[in-house]
Nucleic acid binder design. Structure first.
Length: 175
DNA sequence: AGAGCGATGGCCT
DNA sequence: GGCCATCGCTCTA
């Protein structure tokens, strides 16, 4: 399916890593011809996982402290991915709280760097496929009210409405 | 070899 | 709302 559709249909699905489970409530799509996408200027060592098969994890390091988690969505060599921006914690909440150093449920996974820390995802997961592994995606219920709007934290491609979130979720990073 | 930067988060006002 | 820590990678020379 096209990356935009995948970004929408991932809402309501579950991201699982070991004993931690979170429901995906916020995503962003990054396309090959999108100036905000890491793949826009071609393949480099940093972004090469983004050019892998659909279903590959793309984990990158940002701002000196944080990692972000993406799911690669297109054919090999076509660099497209969906950034997971927020989760509703479902299982393994105690472990998430320990990893994050906070007890505020709404603040555990409300942001791309936060959810990576809470779920225990690491740079070792970069380039791994997400099928039948410790780190994987499972289908959830179909979601009704999806909000589509502009993406957050970028300087290029800001006009593209490629961010999606579940309207009534308390766990999105920002309204 | 070195400057500049980035799909963030936490703390401060 | 603003500031800034912090670091790997890319770009330029």
């Amino acid at each position: 399916a096209p990356t935009i559709s995948i970004a929408k249909s991932l809402l309501g699905c579950y991201l699982i890593n070991g004993k931690c489970v979170g429901k995906i409530v916020e995503t962003e799509a990054y396309l090959f011809d999108d100036p905000a996408s890491h793949s826009f200027k071609g393949k480099t060592k940093r972004n090469e996982a983004m050019f892998g098969e659909a279903g590959t994890a793309y984990v990158y390091f940002i701002y000196g402290n944080h990692y972000c988690f993406n799911i690669v969505t297109n054919k090999k060599e076509i660099g497209e991915a969906v950034l997971i921006r927020a989760l509703e914690p479902v299982e393994g909440i105690k472990l998430m709280k320990n990893r994050r150093g906070t007890y505020d449920l709404k603040n555990l996974c409300a942001g791309p760097g936060k959810l990576v820390e809470a779920m225990g995802i690491s740079k070792e997961d970069n380039g791994k496929d997400l099928l039948n592994r410790k780190l994987r995606i499972e289908k959830g219920r179909k979601v009704k009210n999806i909000v589509q709007c502009e993406r957050i934290g970028i300087t290029k491609g800001t006009e593209l409405p490629h961010r999606f979130y579940i309207e009534d979720s308390e766990f999105v990073s920002k309204r």
